Each structure stands twice: as C-alpha cells, then as structure tokens.
Simulated assay, not measured.
Amino acid sequence: MFAKKLKKMRKILIPTDFTVESLQLVEYAILNYPDTKLDIKLIAGYKLPDTRWGITHFNEREQIRKQFTDDFEKAKRRIVLEHKNTIQTFSFELFTGVNSFAFQNFLEQIDAEYAIVPKKETLNCPNKKWFDATSYIKKNVKNVIEVPVDVSEEITEKKFSLINLFNL
C-alpha cells in the first residue's frame, strides 16, 4: 500500500511569455505524466540591464511579477488548485544568459532533464528585454516534447508587420 502512494518526481521546464496560452503546456505535462509528481519550472528569457545601476537594482522576482496579468494569475491558480495532487512545485525562472553555454550552466543549477515546448514559435515576448528561451531548451535539454499550442488571434496578430500593411 505504501509503495502505491510513492510517486516519482519529474522536473519539467516549460517556456512562458506569461500568457494564458503558454499554460496549455503545463496542462499537457499534467495529463501526460499522471502517476508522477511534477516540479514545473516556467522559463522566460530576460536581457540583463547594461548599466551598473541597472544590474545592482535588478530584482528577478520583481521582473517576473510585473509580467503577471489578472488572467494569467487566475489561470495559474486554477491549474495549481485543480492538480494539487500532481504538482509538487510550480515556479518561475529567468534565463539571463546569451548563449548555449550559459544555458547549460543554468540547467545544471536547476537540475532539469525534461522539457515541454510549443511546436511552432508561439511565444510573444512583451518587449525587447524579454526573449523566448525555447530554442535554448530544444538545443540543450535531453528530453524535449514539442506540443501544438492553440493561440488566440490577439497574440498572433502583428498589427505593424509588413505583411499586414500589404493586406490593407
């Protein structure tokens, strides 16, 4: 009886742009590892400030918290509450490096071998300080699963792209 309650733990990296759509990957992890405790780590890329003052006043948690919208926070809370028996931990990490070597060091620190990423480039980074860490994950994590993600029109529409200018 005791052996059945014991579940193995799996640490899974998931890239995020702090949209509700990016949380679909968390739900995929929950559905596909039903008998496993999950340590979910949502990863976002962030370019560190380039001034001494900016670096000394940089606060990772504050930068992450600024990206939370009410919808994202509600969706995250709903997932955690609905799957509290499966999700052991749910956290956010910033990757602040600039190459694969830095990402490999980052992976060593968080000790993760599994990742779930969107099949196509669907992450929409909010400004030039943020970047999609998916390509680093694909190149450096041992076990990567690519999943199609449904994206709302608001996210995929690029209002000021050259393609849209020609369609007017």
Rank of each mutant, 00 (worst) to 15 (best):
Phe18Trp: 09
Arg78Leu: 08
Asn143Asp: 15
Val151Tyr: 07
Lys76Pro: 01
Leu31Ala: 04
Ser135Leu: 10
Ile163Arg: 14
Glu21Asn: 15
Glu60Gln: 09
Glu73Ala: 11
Phe106Pro: 07
Ile79Gly: 00
Phe101Met: 03
Gln109Met: 01
Arg65Asp: 14
Asp39Thr: 05
Lys37Glu: 01
Leu162Ala: 15
Lys47Ala: 07
Val117Lys: 04
Tyr136Val: 03
Arg78His: 13
Thr56Arg: 11
Pro126Tyr: 00
Leu94Phe: 09
Lys158Gly: 11
Glu82Asp: 09
Ile30Val: 07
Glu113Gln: 05
Asn164Phe: 02
Lys74Arg: 13
Ala102Gln: 06
Ile145Thr: 15
Phe72His: 10
Ser91Asp: 07
Ala112Arg: 06
Lys37Ala: 04
Thr134Trp: 04
Thr69Tyr: 06
Glu154Tyr: 02
Lys4Gln: 11
Arg65Glu: 13
Leu31Ile: 00
Arg78Asp: 15
Thr51Ser: 11
Leu107Lys: 11
Glu146Asn: 10
Arg78Ile: 05
Glu154Ala: 10
Ile30Thr: 03
His57Ala: 07
Leu38Ala: 05
Leu162Tyr: 14
Lys66Ala: 15
Lys158Phe: 12
Phe131Gln: 14
Leu13Gly: 13
Glu62Asn: 12
Glu27Ser: 08
Gln24Cys: 09
Phe2His: 14
Ile40Glu: 04
Ala102Thr: 03
Leu23His: 06
Lys84Ser: 15
Pro118Cys: 05
Pro118Met: 08
Phe106Val: 02
Pro49Leu: 08
Thr51Asp: 07
Val117Ala: 03
Lys5Ser: 14
Arg77Trp: 05
Tyr46Pro: 10
Pro49Trp: 02
Leu48Arg: 13
Ser91Pro: 00
Gln63Asn: 11
Val147Lys: 07
Gln88Glu: 01
Glu153His: 10
Ser135Ala: 06
Thr96Ala: 01
Leu168Lys: 12
Ile110Cys: 10
Pro126Ala: 15
Ser161Asn: 12
Asn143Thr: 13
Pro126Arg: 14
Ile14Asn: 11
Phe166Val: 02
Arg65Tyr: 08
Val141Phe: 12
Trp130Lys: 13
Ile43Asn: 09
Tyr46Ile: 02
Lys138Ala: 09
Gly45Thr: 00
Met9Ala: 06
Lys128Arg: 13
Ile145Val: 11
Lys11Ser: 13
Arg10Thr: 04
Leu81Met: 05
Val117Tyr: 02
Arg10Gly: 00
Leu162Asn: 15
